[in-house]
């Protein structure tokens, strides 16, 4: 046997939740440590072993000019790069600012705005460098994370299906909340991976795993309207953890435009 492959875990703009998913693996993490050299994982240890790294897990989105540079170093140091979590794969909850003017926020929040260097948009890792695999979820699922590591170690394709939460929901034997109680659910356009936890508790899916492989958001929104949900609710539903993921972004923007047009019409007709 040769030397153990090196694992690196990087962080950009994020809440650390995905790294915590890895730390929460406890028992399995010991097994990972047996098979790989955990060479760079600041959340777990300050000791750093030099690269290159065979596998890099990258958490967080790119929000500052410095990070936009650093992510290229990360790419160069990594043979196999997996971006993990909603931030790294779609821009995360912080991408809500992409829909507004970030300079305005800065001037409101900070006393001396000139010290803040923030990019206008929070963007996923794949906007900046080539990514070998994106693992979605806010946070990523522990089982999926271990599956990716295990697949990497044993040289096989990871099983991370692109189908919707509905498939998991039905396998789990849940009763569909959209059909049986008219509760809006993002499951049909959201990628599987969570095991359909929300529907199992009679709640609609919030879409924290981001878009599925073929998300028909237009048709789902129309259905939401038929079951009595308004345009504002549709904008809000698509504008959360994965707001800047392309299919979700388009959908929230379409309904936002509709709302703006409506408001315009109302104001002209009342004046």
């Amino acid at each position: 046997m040769g030397r153990k492959p090196k694992l690196a875990v990087y962080k950009f703009a994020s809440c650390d939740g995905c790294q915590l998913s890895l730390l929460n693996c406890e028992e399995e993490l010991m097994a990972v440590a047996g098979e790989m050299e955990i060479a760079y994982f600041l959340e777990a240890s300050r000791a750093v072993v030099k690269g290159p790294y065979q596998l890099s897990l990258v958490e967080g989105s790119i929000t500052t000019p410095r990070d936009a540079e650093r992510v290229h170093q990360v790419r160069r140091a990594s043979r196999f790069l997996v971006s993990i979590g909603a931030c790294a794969t779609s821009g995360g909850i912080q991408s809500l600012r992409n829909f507004k003017d970030v300079r305005e926020f800065v001037s409101v929040v900070y006393a001396t705005a000139e010290y803040i260097e923030a990019l206008e948009k929070s963007t996923p890792i794949s906007y900046h460098v080539r990514v070998d695999l994106e693992l979605q979820g806010c946070p990523v699922g522990k089982d999926q994370l271990l599956e990716v590591i295990s697949a990497f170690l044993h040289n096989r394709r990871p099983n991370v299906p692109a189908y919707s939460v509905c498939m998991e929901c039905k396998k789990a034997g849940n009763v569909c909340v959209m059909v049986a109680s008219g509760t809006p659910c993002l499951g049909p356009v959201t990628r599987a991976g969570c095991g359909a936890v929300c529907p199992a508790y009679q709640r609609g899916c919030y879409g924290c795993f981001g878009p599925s492989g073929s998300p028909n958001t237009i048709s789902l929104s129309e259905r939401w309207q038929q079951i009595g949900k308004g345009e504002e609710e549709i904008v809000r539903a698509f504008r959360s953890f994965n707001a800047y993921a392309e299919p979700f972004r388009r959908e929230s923007e379409a309904y936002e435009r509709l709302l703006t047009e409506k408001a315009l019409r109302d104001s002209t007709s009342s004046s």
């Binding site: 919707s164 498939m167 039905k170 049909p188 028909n216 048709s219 789902l220």
Partner: peptide, 13 residues
């Protein structure tokens, strides 16, 4: 196809 969500519910039930 414009309406279908490709969610797979039909085949599952």
């Amino acid at each position: 196809a414009r309406r279908c969500l490709t969610c797979g519910n039909c085949t599952m039930v």
